[in-house]
Lab assay of single mutants.
Amino acid sequence: MATGGRRGAAAAPLLVAVAALLLGAAGHLYPGEVCPGMDIRNNLTRLHELENCSVIEGHLQILLMFKTRPEDFRDLSFPKLIMITDYLLLFRVYGLESLKDLFPNLTVIRGSRLFFNYALVIFEMVHLKELGLYNLMNITRGSVRIEKNNELCYLATIDWSRILDSVEDNYIVLNKDDNEECGDICPGTAKGKTNCPATVINGQFVERCWTHSHCQKVCPTICKSHGCTAEGLCCHSECLGNCSQPDDPTKCVACRNFYLDGRCVETCPPPYYHFQDWRCVNFSFCQDLHHKCKNSRRQGCHQYVIHNNKCIPECPSGYTMNSSNLLCTPCLGPCPKVCHLLEGEKTIDSVTSAQELRGCTVINGSLIINIRGGNNLAAELEANLGLIEEISGYLKIRRSYALVSLSFFRKLRLIRGETLEIGNYSFYALDNQNLRQLWDWSKHNLTITQGKLFFHYNPKLCLSEIHKMEEVSGTKGRQERNDIALKTNGDQASCENELLKFSYIRTSFDKI
């Protein structure tokens, strides 16, 4: 039985969820670079991206490699990797027998973001014989899940209580170790020597080791999670996991709180800001991140802002960003909400898709409305799209047979046209069989910064309504002859009103 693990408890099935942008060198404390989270699957090609990484700022997932063999891993080693800020997950990587050479110096898994409450997941690794993470000293947050690894031993010899604050939620089941077939031998045991430290858990006094050649490092209890030197002297209180010299914040392997210019500090002093819960960055760093993602459509890219001495992905609820200094300031009234469309555009074809934009005031991208039916549609669209004030790209209304009016965009005031449909149009209306009105132009103002209007096959939309939009939106004169079809717009509506004058002759039985 794995020490510190839980057996036999019912657990939810383990679901495996399925960018080499360097964020800056980590400095003297770390020998390499800070790398983003990685999802490495199918083959070993991307694994080489770990070569210079000291910190993975995010998670590391290595999974679904069915053609790899043990010899493929023999020359692979990433000794610079010290810390993973989120979680480490391995799933069905064939041929991998140990992690001792792959990650010989991995010391800390912070667990800032977890995989279903777990910071370390080893699942269905069919050839893994031992973990071998002999320098792993601290899992700051989260638990361990090690399950269905039929060859995995050296679990009962690990004292997880020396690595985690609590072992109650560890789930370590259905491994070879369960069948008591392992016969784990710690260093020196074969020669009758006791080389590794022994600890007591559940009444068992057991030597602690990761492999037959690597003991588990056990520091004096007084050192807590700070770690200790090879001689057993406690590291500085700002260290986490390990250090090369005692009581020196510049000799830590990793930091308990924050890293700044080669030393570990309790908090980031001005003019620095907390970033990702582990390091200090200056304003320029946060500003660069903001600008890199301002026009990016890459998933996970955030326009970072500053709030409460932190550089964070977005302002919290009730705050909006001051564009001059990136500071989050309290909103006066309802907060603006910028919604970034991942692929640059979004099609609204149902109430469900409209709900995804609920509360958005600025759309960074283009909207395509293609709704053919739905219950209580006008009210639903207004509830979900009615706060949109600005669209950076274009607005396209296409084959939306259920629409009679666009009044559900009740606050839309600006279409920038930074991206144009077919390279020309910022407003595009095609084949809307029941569209009769755009907006009530006596109450609604709309500016279209650039781009043209396109109207074709809107049989109940009168040309007068379209011409009014040209005047109000500032697009009059931009359109070419064929942009607004004269014969297919309003051709099934009563669009022309003329005053009919009647004269009559009164007659009676005795007068003409």
Rank of each mutant, 00 (worst) to 15 (best):
E231L: 07
T229W: 07
K176D: 15
E151Q: 12
Y134P: 06
C182R: 06
E71N: 11
L164W: 03
P316V: 03
L128E: 01
L136H: 01
R113A: 05
V281I: 12
T189Y: 04
K148M: 08
V55Q: 04
D75Y: 15
I185S: 06
S323K: 06
C153Q: 09
R263W: 00
G132P: 01
Q276F: 12
V121W: 05
S161L: 12
C252Q: 00
D177R: 10
L289W: 02
A230F: 12
P187D: 10
T329P: 02
R46I: 03
C215P: 14
V206F: 15
C311V: 03
I56H: 00
T250L: 10
C223S: 04
E33M: 14
V281L: 02
V206A: 05
P249V: 02
N117S: 07
I312M: 11
D261L: 01
K224Y: 14
G32H: 05
T211R: 14
C53P: 00
F66I: 15
T211L: 10
G227C: 09
K176R: 08
T194P: 11
T221R: 05
H274R: 03
C328S: 01
G241N: 05
F123P: 00
I306F: 14
L260C: 01
N308F: 09
C186A: 10
S112L: 14
N242L: 11
D261R: 01
H236Q: 02
L50E: 00
V253Y: 10
S323V: 14
C53F: 00
Y273A: 04
S161F: 11
C153L: 02
L90T: 06
I56C: 01
Y94T: 02
E314S: 07
T211V: 12
C255I: 01
N105G: 10
Y134R: 13
Q276C: 03
L60N: 00
C315R: 01
G111A: 03
T189V: 09
G58R: 00
D177Y: 03
H226R: 12
F258S: 05
D277R: 07
V55W: 03
R92S: 06
V167D: 03
Y134S: 09
N105P: 00
D86T: 02
P79W: 13
E238H: 11
I222Y: 08
P249L: 01
N135Q: 10
K129P: 01
C186F: 10
L88N: 01
H28N: 14
N149R: 01
S244N: 08
I40Q: 02
L155G: 14
I146Q: 04
N179K: 15
P36V: 05
D288L: 13
D261N: 04
D184R: 13
E147S: 13
G95A: 06
Q287S: 15
T320W: 09
C331S: 03
V305T: 05
V121P: 00
L50I: 09
I84A: 00
I109M: 03
K310S: 05
P334V: 15
C286M: 01
Q61F: 07
P31F: 12
M38L: 07
G232P: 07
V173M: 07
E124S: 09
G262L: 02
T85A: 04
N135M: 15
L174S: 14
Y272S: 01
T140Q: 11
P330R: 11
N149S: 13
P336A: 06
G318W: 08
Q276V: 10
D169S: 05
K193L: 10
R263M: 00
G192L: 14
L131T: 12
Q204M: 10
I109A: 00
P269V: 08
I306W: 03
D261E: 01
R74S: 07
L128T: 03
L76K: 15
N43P: 02
I222P: 11
P197L: 10
P334Q: 10
T194H: 12
L44E: 10
K80I: 04
N295Q: 07
D177H: 15
N150S: 10
F103K: 01
A198V: 06
D248M: 03
K191G: 13
F66P: 14
V173H: 15
N150Q: 12
C35W: 01
Y259I: 07
P70N: 02
V144G: 02
T68D: 12
T157L: 11
K191S: 08
I222G: 11
C35K: 00
L88Q: 00
C243H: 00
H214V: 13
C182Q: 14
N52S: 10
V253A: 06
T107G: 02
I84K: 00
R208F: 15
L106Y: 00
Y134N: 06
S296H: 10
Y87V: 00
T140M: 08
K224F: 05
C335P: 07
T250C: 03
K80G: 10
E151K: 14
T221A: 10
K67L: 06
E130M: 14
D178M: 15
P70S: 05
Y134H: 01
S323T: 11
G111Q: 00
N170E: 06
F78Y: 12
V34Y: 09
V144M: 08
C209F: 02
V55R: 01
E151S: 06
L233F: 08
I62G: 01
I163D: 01
V55P: 00
N202W: 08
N42G: 04
G132Y: 01
K80V: 05
F103W: 05
P316H: 02
C182G: 04
V200N: 14
K191C: 02
P104Y: 01
I201A: 14
G241I: 02
H290G: 07
R297C: 05
G142S: 02
D277Q: 09
Q245N: 09
L89G: 01
V108K: 02
E168F: 08
Y134E: 07
